[in-house]
């Protein structure tokens, strides 16, 4: 009887755990094994035949200029966007640190960009960036300057996409860092003030070192998110002009869903995953290294 009861008790946990486990395995583990397998084949969805090509897909892709451009653009976007967001987020957290009338409302407004859909944001910025009717070029011409092809000039397009990402995600960096600041006991600031430190010194020598882990966490989350850049490229430039805004995710999308070269798309996916793994390991080490 006792044994039976225990068996019933155990089986209950297996039953409630199973659905989530199955869905996660089906939606993530299965596809990851599949892309690894498919990446060794010439495999097109259209003809639906697999020919083993070994590392052929990898060798071809890595040698292609388009892929190299995608990789470089992704790295540039990731580094510039995530670092700028952290710097701006810290600055914003310092600016909004003190109490003032309407602080609550101001903070609520600040987080609007991160809850609105990326597509809605792209729609608005598309108007801002418009060559003829856009607000930005209107301001420039009013100031007597040349119009800029924000999304059509290949030297500017990637920067324009970065700017949209800054607008959308700096609030996120701000929120996490503000939370970190709130948890610093005020005695620390008081002690520093009594010792005669100026507020600039306190910020650099006291607050920032304490916030190190928050800053690293935001940097990690933003790096991993910016590395997958797809939506904004799809909506704003379509990878152009002259491939100036091609990214790894967009490369995979085109190979897989425009040309149906599933083998090549899989190989590019595996390369992307290796990149993500490197990024993640780097940060996890830094975050854990602090605790030891």
């Amino acid at each position: 009887m006792r044994n039976r009861e225990r068996a019933v008790y155990s089986s209950f946990f297996y039953i409630v755990f199973a659905p989530a486990l199955l869905i996660i395995l089906l939606l993530t583990t299965y596809p990851m094994v599949t892309i690894l397998y498919d990446s060794f084949f010439r495999y097109s969805f259209v003809v639906n035949t697999r020919t083993f090509v070994g590392l052929g897909n990898y060798i071809h892709i890595v040698g292609e200029e388009l892929f190299q451009r995608s990789l470089i653009n992704t790295l540039v976007f990731t580094l510039v966007a995530s670092f700028s967001e952290v710097v701006l987020g810290v600055a914003l957290a310092f600016l909004l640190k003190r109490q003032f009338l309407g602080k609550r409302v101001a903070s609520l407004i600040v987080i609007f960009p991160m809850i609105i859909s990326t597509m809605v944001i792209c729609a608005v910025w598309q108007i801002f960036y418009h060559y003829e009717i856009g607000l930005f070029n209107h301001v420039l011409t009013t100031l007597g300057m040349q119009r800029v092809g924000w999304l059509t000039d290949q030297r500017v397009a990637l920067a324009s996409i970065i700017l949209v990402d800054l607008w959308q995600w700096t609030p996120f960096a701000f929120l996490i860092i503000q939370a970190g600041m709130g948890s610093i006991p005020s005695e620390i600031f008081e002690a520093a003030q009594i010792d005669g430190a100026r507020s600039g010194q306190i910020a650099v020598k006291v607050t920032l070192p304490i916030l190190r882990n928050q800053i690293l966490l935001v940097l990690m989350l933003r790096t991993l998110d910016t590395f997958r850049l797809f939506d904004k490229v799809y909506a704003l430039t379509g990878g152009g002009p002259a491939n100036a805004t091609q990214t790894l995710s967009f490369f995979i999308y085109r190979e897989g869903f425009k040309f149906f070269n599933f083998g090549r798309a899989s190989a590019a996916s595996v390369i992307t995953l290796v990149g993500v793994a490197f990024l993640a390991l780097f940060y996890v080490r830094r975050l854990l290294g602090e605790e030891e």
Partner: peptide
């Protein structure tokens, strides 16, 4: 990056 899961 979710796109890597999309093809399979």
């Amino acid at each position: 990056p979710p796109i890597v899961l999309a093809v399979p």
